[in-house]
Design a protein around this nucleic acid. Structure first.
Length: 419
RNA sequence: CGGGGUAUAGCGCAGCUUGGUAGCGCACUUGGUUUGGGCCCAGGGGGUCGUCAGUUCGAGUCUGGCUACCCCGACCA
């Protein structure tokens, strides 16, 4: 994409009504637009990042047997009454509205009921199980207070997978696979080194649920990390009994603030029972389906990456989720330099290397550098009179402090290598 | 939902104490100039001062209601 066609602009100054680092940088760099508290639009750059994250999650979900679908946002009151989650006394963050004829409806704040209701049509026999449907969609929660930029929104984009298994054993096998898939996701998104499998409260069907908590001062949760074991314990279940059952010593734990970037949960028959979600086993006996839920907030993940990986100049995207791989900067108005830059731009596009080409004229070199640092694309290539005189293009990673001059062949080979 | 703060041009702010018809920086625009770290010079456009009511000859400024936003706390199935 040519930057002259990108309508967003960077801002030097931080927005007055944002304190969180993620929102400040993402707004300044032109990735998101704030509509109101807890509600953000994704601009071209932001959407590219969101889609990259979506692709990683989709690959990992498909890899463990997930089948993608899309549940509706508008939800039927009667469905949610079955599980007693329609009443405002029970769930206080519904967005509810009415159809023209007066029928009450709600906007999805989660998906268990929708999936249970749909899958009832398709689960009859043990031969139909297990299945792992999931979707990406916008979720709505009427939070009393929204904060921390895109870490906690009233409208947010998430992935939710639900597992439908014949029995506990089958459920547990998948649950372990899901853990590994989640670890892969956070590793691939660039925050694996700071993200811990965390034991949290489990509800009535299992002792624990598992959260994936990324350590950052921007976090709202408090966790106790055992660095050697690579696990953590949420403050909400932190007590002597739990420590003993996990074989963890108090002295090995370090307290940290963290963001919950993912959560997996054994649901047992909590939803299959009220929805009468049963199958016939080999003996013709009816049994309740065992369910689990597996969620990730994509916006929250994106915001967490910004919180964790930025520096004082701007964002530092991991290559896996960066809006582009390469930021090509053209400096100066010399025709020869322009032609070289345009030629390289076309060449990179031919090679399917994603490139943002700063072809803007009348923008000083300093401003282009500052924009590039703020936007945070992994590779910066500079073409100028000076670079050409020195024999080629200056390439610098966002994480490096200075670049080096290389020729076209070296450049292509560098950018084509996977890492 | 409880407590605290804020609201003036697209963005960031000053002006309010002491009422007299709105200003600065960035951005935008025109011309010139410059091109390796957020240039330079000259000109220009853009604001019913969140909203409603009140006090006053006169309100951005004083008073009250409302709304929105931010922070702390509670909540987060």
């Amino acid at each position: 994409m040519k930057q002259s066609q990108l309508f967003t602009r960077t801002k030097k100054e931080s927005p007055a009504d944002e304190v969180s680092l993620n929102a400040e940088l993402l707004i300044r760099a032109g990735f998101i637009n704030k509509e109101m508290a807890g509600v953000y639009s994704y601009l071209p750059l932001g959407l590219r990042v969101l889609k990259k994250i979506e692709s990683i999650i989709r690959e990992e979900m498909d890899n463990i047997g997930g089948t993608e679908m899309r549940t509706s946002v508008i939800q039927n009151k009667e469905v949610w009454e079955k599980s007693n989650r329609w009443d405002d006394e029970v769930v206080d963050n519904w967005f509810k509205t009415k159809l023209k004829n007066g029928t009450e409806v709600g906007l999805s704040f989660t998906n268990e009921e929708a999936y249970s209701n749909i899958l009832k049509h398709y689960i009859n026999s043990y031969k139909d199980l297990p299945i792992y449907p999931y979707d990406f969609k916008n979720i709505f929660r009427n939070e009393a207070r929204s904060k921390s930029g895109i870490l906690r929104g009233r409208e947010f984009y998430w992935k939710a997978l639900y597992s439908f298994s014949k029995d506990e054993k089958e459920h547990n096998e998948f649950y372990e696979k899901a853990k590994e898939a989640y670890k892969n996701i956070f590793k691939r998104a660039g925050i694996g080194h700071l993200t811990y499998l965390t034991f949290a409260s489990g509800g009535s069907f299992s002792k624990f649920s598992h959260e994936f908590q990324t350590i950052t001062s921007a976090g709202e949760d408090t966790i106790y990390v055992d660095e050697n074991k690579g696990i953590a314990i949420n403050k909400e279940v932190y007590n002597d009994e739990v420590l003993e059952s996990l074989g963890v010593k108090k002295d090995d734990l370090v307290e940290n603030k963290a963001v919950e970037v993912g959560n997996i949960f054994s649901l047992g028959t909590k939803f299959s029972a009220p929805f009468d979600l049963k199958y016939k086993d080999e003996n013709g006996e009816e049994k309740l389906v065992i369910m689990g839920s597996y969620g990730i907030g994509l916006g929250r993940l994106m915001g967490t990456v910004v919180e964790v990986l930025s520096d004082d100049k701007g964002i530092i995207w991991p290559e896996s989720i960066a809006p582009f791989k390469v930021h090509l900067l053209l400096l100066g108005g010399d025709e020869n330099v322009k032609n070289e830059a345009g030629g390289l731009y076309n060449k990179l596009k031919e090679k399917n290397i994603e490139v943002l080409f700063d072809d803007r004229s009348d923008i000083s070199a300093g401003e282009k550098f500052a924009d590039s640092d703020l936007i945070g694309i992994p590779y910066r290539i500079v073409i100028s009179k000076r670079s050409l005189a020195d024999g080629g293009y200056e390439v610098k990673k966002r994480t490096e402090s200075s670049g080096k001059i290389i020729n076209i062949d070296e450049l292509i080979s560098l950018l084509e290598t996977k890492n």
